[in-house]
Amino acid sequence: MSKPRSLLLPPRTRARALETARGDFAVLDTEPLGRRRGTVLLLPGYTGSKEDFLALLGPLSEAGYRAVAVDGRGQYESRGPRGRAAYRRRALALDAVAQAAALGDGPVQLLGHSFGGLVAREAATIAPAAFRSLTLLSSGPGRVTRPQRIRIRVLRVGLALLTKERVWQLMCWLDSRGEEPDTTDVPELAVFLRRRWMRTRIAQLAGAGRLLLCRQDGTEELAALRMPLHIVYGTDEMVWPVADLAAAAARTGAHHTVVKGAGHSPNVSHPRELTDLLTGFWEGADAPAGFRTVP
């Protein structure tokens, strides 16, 4: 999971409920500084939340973009049902389509981080007219790495057998052995991470884990999309095999960029470098002919 390094809201940001045709969703909505160049919808990853994008919201705003980070259904501050069917990929994707429509800004740039990329891919397939482009940030197609598959299976078994508190303790131990920076020595962040875990629906956690373990490749699905596509990740990505991500970019003709020195969450560790890469892609995507070539 991504671990924000600060919980301070950037300037021009408000936390609010986004009312959609499929229910209300908790969002962080950041207005642009100066003339608006576009609107971006940001979908977080597994065990994450809208706060994963806090470091990115300010730079996007300064670049002229309205940036809206969302908690998906059952994720942290967004309500969600208990049933398994509510967390199938299509249901989550339809939520993203409804969120884009509710923003009222016409087609928006869509970005999904890690698990959020799986949802974003499906949303772009279902309703391509709702989105100007699709960015997969540290996200497939393909399968997550073997250590990550083991981690997800352990968490899913734990959720079925143990209390949520015990699973939280297990997850903290697993994360301490991963690539994300440690935040447990910052009291307010440690409190936030635990609160986010405890408030996220078990059905959401189990459903997202199930989707991440799916063997479906998805490259052909991406290649068939009729919109600009961007695959971006860090040089030290550990959740998805870097070779698979590079191969997917080549096979789909996606715009392909790598954030030097970043791990699984460039949105946390390298927000300004990532903003430059994203805005460069969006400018090209909004050009009259668009583009979908590897630089």
Rank of each mutant, 00 (worst) to 15 (best):
Q148V: 13
R149S: 06
R149K: 13
R149A: 07
I150L: 11
I150K: 13
I152P: 00
I152M: 03
I152N: 00
R153L: 11
R153K: 15
R153E: 09
V154T: 09
V154H: 03
L155Y: 04
R156F: 00
R156L: 03
R156C: 02
V157D: 13
V157I: 14
V157A: 13
G158N: 08
G158K: 09
L159R: 11
L159N: 11
L159A: 11
A160Y: 04
A160G: 13
L161T: 13
L161S: 07
L161A: 13
L161M: 14
L162H: 11
L162Y: 08
L162I: 12
L162G: 11
T163S: 15
T163I: 14
T163A: 10
K164V: 07
R166T: 10
V167C: 07
V167S: 05
V167G: 00
W168F: 06
W168H: 07
W168Q: 04
Q169G: 07
Q169H: 08
Q169E: 07
Q169R: 15
Q169N: 08
L170D: 06
L170S: 09
L170C: 08
L170E: 06
L170G: 11
L170Q: 10
M171V: 10
M171G: 06
M171L: 15
C172Q: 15
C172K: 15
W173I: 14
W173A: 15
W173D: 14
D175L: 14
D175T: 14
S176T: 07
S176W: 02
S176G: 14
S176H: 12
S176V: 05
R177Q: 11
G178Y: 05
G178E: 09
G178Q: 11
G178F: 03
G178I: 03
E179I: 11
E179S: 14
E179G: 14
E179M: 10
E179P: 09
E180R: 11
E180L: 12
E180Y: 04
E180A: 12
E180K: 09
E180M: 11
P181T: 00
P181N: 03
P181Q: 03
D182A: 01
T183G: 02
T183F: 00
T184A: 05
D185E: 08
D185K: 08
V186K: 04
V186G: 01
V186I: 08
P187R: 01
P187D: 00
E188F: 01
E188G: 01
E188T: 04
E188H: 03
E188W: 01
L189K: 02
L189F: 00
A190W: 01
V191D: 07
V191Q: 12
V191K: 09
V191W: 05
F192L: 02
F192H: 01
L193N: 04
L193K: 03
L193W: 02
L193A: 05
R194P: 01
R195W: 05
R195H: 12
R196S: 10
R196W: 04
W197Y: 08
W197H: 07
M198P: 06
M198R: 12
T200Q: 02
T200C: 03
R201Q: 12
R201N: 11
R201Y: 03
I202T: 15
I202K: 15
I202V: 15
I202P: 14
A203Y: 06
A203F: 06
A203E: 11
A203V: 10
Q204C: 15
Q204F: 10
